[in-house]
Amino acid sequence: MEPGEIRKALADAVRTPIPSLNCFGFVPDVVPPPAFYAGEVEIDFDKTFGRGMDEIQVTCRLLVSRADDRSGQALLDKYLAGSGEYSVKAALMAARGAPGEPALGGLADDLHLRRVQGYRLYQVGEVQFYGAELIVHVYGRG
């Protein structure tokens, strides 16, 4: 699995059902809120015998405007919900494909949004945003 392709596919998977989000498969220099982007990558090679399954952990960030504390956090909560039209989790789980089908359009065998963490203020350049990190695990052949 190639990390750059995985990051782009994660952004595409969220962009399709949630067009109101600005989605990036890379860490942008400027963040137009609301935004989702695939950030840091950790790779665990050879999770099975020999040169078998690899696991890529991608730390994604979801950032919304801080212009109004109450409405900004309410919007962030909508995106972090487990279901609904704004749910990033639902968008990512749809990218898993049907049972027995590959995930992310064939780039991986499976993926799992493991957790949300770091619900707090984030700073990008001189601008602060309300946001959270989404930890996504992607599994595939090495």
Rank of each mutant, 00 (worst) to 15 (best):
L104H: 08
G105W: 13
V116T: 13
P99Y: 14
G50T: 07
S71V: 06
T59Q: 09
A81N: 06
M53T: 15
L76M: 04
Q117F: 01
R96H: 03
S83T: 13
L80A: 07
E101W: 07
R51C: 03
M53Y: 10
E85M: 04
R66E: 10
A38M: 09
K47G: 15
Q57M: 09
C60K: 00
V41S: 10
D109C: 08
Y37F: 15
K47Y: 12
G97K: 10
E55G: 04
L113N: 03
C60E: 06
A108K: 06
G39W: 02
S65D: 06
D44C: 04
L80D: 04
A67L: 08
Q57W: 03
T59L: 04
R114D: 09
K47Q: 15
A95H: 05
L92A: 10
A95L: 05
A74N: 08
G84Q: 09
D44S: 13
R120E: 11
S71E: 08
G50I: 00
G118A: 13
V64W: 01
Y79R: 05
V116H: 05
G72D: 03
S83C: 02
L92I: 13
Y86T: 00
Y119C: 02
G82D: 13
L63A: 10
A95G: 08
S71M: 04
L62Q: 04
L107P: 07
C60T: 07
L75C: 02
R96V: 00
G82I: 02
V64K: 02
Y79K: 05
R61I: 00
G100R: 12
D44R: 14
H112S: 14
G97N: 10
A91R: 09
A67W: 02
L63D: 05
D46A: 14
V64H: 01
L121C: 02
M93L: 15
L107A: 11
V88I: 14
Q117V: 13
E40Y: 10
Q57R: 11
G106E: 11
C60I: 07
S87Q: 13
K78P: 00
D68W: 04
D109L: 14
S87D: 08
L107G: 10
G106Q: 10
V116S: 06
R114E: 09
R114V: 06
V116C: 05
L76W: 03
E42H: 11
D54V: 01
V64M: 01
C60V: 03
S71C: 00
M93K: 14
